[in-house]
Design a protein around this nucleic acid. Sequence first.
DNA 1: GGGTATTTGTCCGTATGTATG
DNA 2: TCATACATACGGACAAATACC
Lengths: 469, 469
Amino acid sequence: MELTFFIDKTLPEPMYIQLYSSFKRTIETGDIPSGSKLPSIRQLSAQLNISRNTVEAAYQQLLAEGYLISKPKSGLFTADMADMDLLPYQKPVHQEQELSQTGPEIRYDFQYGDISSERFPFQAWKRSINHALLEKGEELLLYGDKQGEARLRCQLADYLYRARGLECNADNVILTTGTQQSISLICQLFSLAGEKIGFENPGYDGVRAVFENHGCKIDPISVKDEGLCVDELEKSNAKIVYVTPSHQFPLGMVMSIQNRLKLLQWASKEEGYVIEDDYDSEFRYSGQPIPSLKGMDRLGRVIYLGTFSKAFLPGIRLSYIVLPKSLLGLYRRKFSAYNQPVSQLIQHAMSQFIESGDFDRHIKRIRKIYQDKHKTLITSISSSFGENAKIIGEKAGLHLLLDIPSQGRESLIDSAVKKSVLVYDPAKYWTDPESCPSNLVLLGFGGLSRSEIEAGVELLKQAWFPGSD
Amino acid sequence: MELTFFIDKTLPEPMYIQLYSSFKRTIETGDIPSGSKLPSIRQLSAQLNISRNTVEAAYQQLLAEGYLISKPKSGLFTADMADMDLLPYQKPVHQEQELSQTGPEIRYDFQYGDISSERFPFQAWKRSINHALLEKGEELLLYGDKQGEARLRCQLADYLYRARGLECNADNVILTTGTQQSISLICQLFSLAGEKIGFENPGYDGVRAVFENHGCKIDPISVKDEGLCVDELEKSNAKIVYVTPSHQFPLGMVMSIQNRLKLLQWASKEEGYVIEDDYDSEFRYSGQPIPSLKGMDRLGRVIYLGTFSKAFLPGIRLSYIVLPKSLLGLYRRKFSAYNQPVSQLIQHAMSQFIESGDFDRHIKRIRKIYQDKHKTLITSISSSFGENAKIIGEKAGLHLLLDIPSQGRESLIDSAVKKSVLVYDPAKYWTDPESCPSNLVLLGFGGLSRSEIEAGVELLKQAWFPGSD
DNA sequence: GGGTATTTGTCCGTATGTATG
DNA sequence: TCATACATACGGACAAATACC
């Protein structure tokens, strides 16, 4: 057999590596049958005009990887391989990532989830990061506490008591990298695969997807003015229900006290659990803040989920679970081998950020900013559309729904795009997207300035009611 | 003849000088007879895990001073010294670095998972963090790419190709906050609740717990010298198998090529998937690193898991999945509503850290440090215990197992504790902890310095074989 | 069929370029 | 700049297996 290899001395890749790769490939493709003898070191070194040791180095590597076996003073042979033809050689496709710029220019994007960056206290955050880097040097290297750093958990427990009327111990707090991971942990905690989950309809699709991916059966429970319809929940035989009582997503109502009590009663009777997602409770624009559901929970039937994504930064990836005491034992049993997923740097920086008071200041400031934006949006909408638009869910949060009776969703969104404004289709929040009312669009206002909001709404008016003035 | 020299890379004295002095002393005392052949440069460099050139430098010095004579192409021999004993050897006064506190508080903790912090490039890491804070200000606020930042994924794909022979596209890379989350995502991807999982026995309990918490049935597959026993796997009807081919955890063997092929063949025949956890492939102590299983996977049946926990920092929380192309569609369907869990700051900082070349340098350096510690541990153990201990899994990684036939595990661990040394019980890695061989203990060496390792092993000797000398 | 020349893997010391601090 | 350490390359020496007369 005549094997020809090409060794290029000018290549940056070492010669012995080139040779090694050539052989490996040839063996894998089956071009060299199993058990056959390879060209001797001397032969090959002569043929390729390279040193014997260079050839030897290549053979040694193949030997170490098990491709060859050596019979000393006799020869080197390809190892007996089961079925190398499983490995047809394919040219590596090293294609460059291309970020395709598409579509028309968008000037005003009412995307939900965008946040206000204009007033973010960058300096203070950097100080906190650097403080963590300097003070906690060694600690940042290691695996930390499984539930999260005790200091941060204490601060959180304290914050939750002050801001949300939620009395809990730092022991009950578990840090996660987001609400979705919190949900995943809960699914694992209760072994929810195959189980029914009571779920708000409409509700947050990001959480619904997690339940579904864990094999849960979603039992859609409709949402009334008072919040989740507990009567419907009672008819279902779900033992776990997911709710957003402070500000229903996406409809925006606040669950009434009466309904909260009813829900807690249900949980107690069924020995079920209520998952309370308090995702944007910091942002209420009218009336007294209503305490969290967990704050009313005396029987340990509520699992509370909080997050820094809205209040602070989505990009920071820091959320938390507050478990009832009765579930801590189960949690520790099931997750004793789990590592804490939030970076130590982030934990310590956040801890420092809270301790310095910068966090409280930031919340205060950002709340006012969103309040302003919210007011601007409401005012703009009612002055632009008057009776032609109904605003839904304007009491809290960073988004609202618009009901424009004149047109369908696609039409509304399309004509907005033509005016370079993005508004969003809320259909995905319905378990059955078909049942989403056909005139609804969703507007998030977190990422736009006041003047942008005003300009955006003006363009929407032109798009939806051209020539109206 | 068995000559043992100790080279300390951390000492200010150059290695070749240390070696030179050791030989000079040994020749002068007559411990090496005149005219005898010295260990060859290759031999010694391999034994001490240092470069051949370093040994050569030492020999050259001895040669120049007349202690050695060189027979070219044959070997180096000690010169014929007439009366060397005219030069009585004096013990150098090696001032021991006093361990200030000799109380029972001092502990040598052979914990697996601790890492070497003494040489962590803090400055470079801080630079990367600050660079990310400055350059990416706005971006850090927002939700990023769902799979992770494209730039970092490209760098990872490139690194995997260079370091692990794994050709993949950035599109196939998904960032996670840890191997456990990677496993959770895979469970969700395939809806594994209730399904059988082929799992190495013994194997990594942290991953087993995740499977179990997702409702999977663990099917323990035993591990032989060649790695996972594929014949057993075939008898099971599992469609998914979890393996650690580069360095089996905890036993430490490398899966042979033949067995790798057999495993791939199984996956192809069963249309199953192999989950390859390449958790510490960076640390091999002999020869070139062996390419990953995924690198041989031409049929898209291998899911690769990597992590920065070992190579970089456990506290950073950054791992990744490489999915075969055929699974990308399913992934995008199931996880379209998921947010990326790794903090933007961490992603951009790591990206900068890699781009600046600091990462490659760090890996290089840290690998050497671990190599050194590894060597120290092996040497200490064999000189302290000799035939009384068998070392298992010493080819790679940051830990090894010790088989001490004389006593049971509890006894070994207890008596070590009394000498203020912590060694660990590996029983939890067995699916049935009862079946763990009773004389095994686990020693991780990542977090201890050379002198700590030596002192720790000495104490272990006193604990386990009191009065042996 | 037994000695011999050749081939073989494996070992040996060495030279050069380069990365690191 | 300079010392140190390593990766990559080189050709010679040797003993055992093999081929050949």
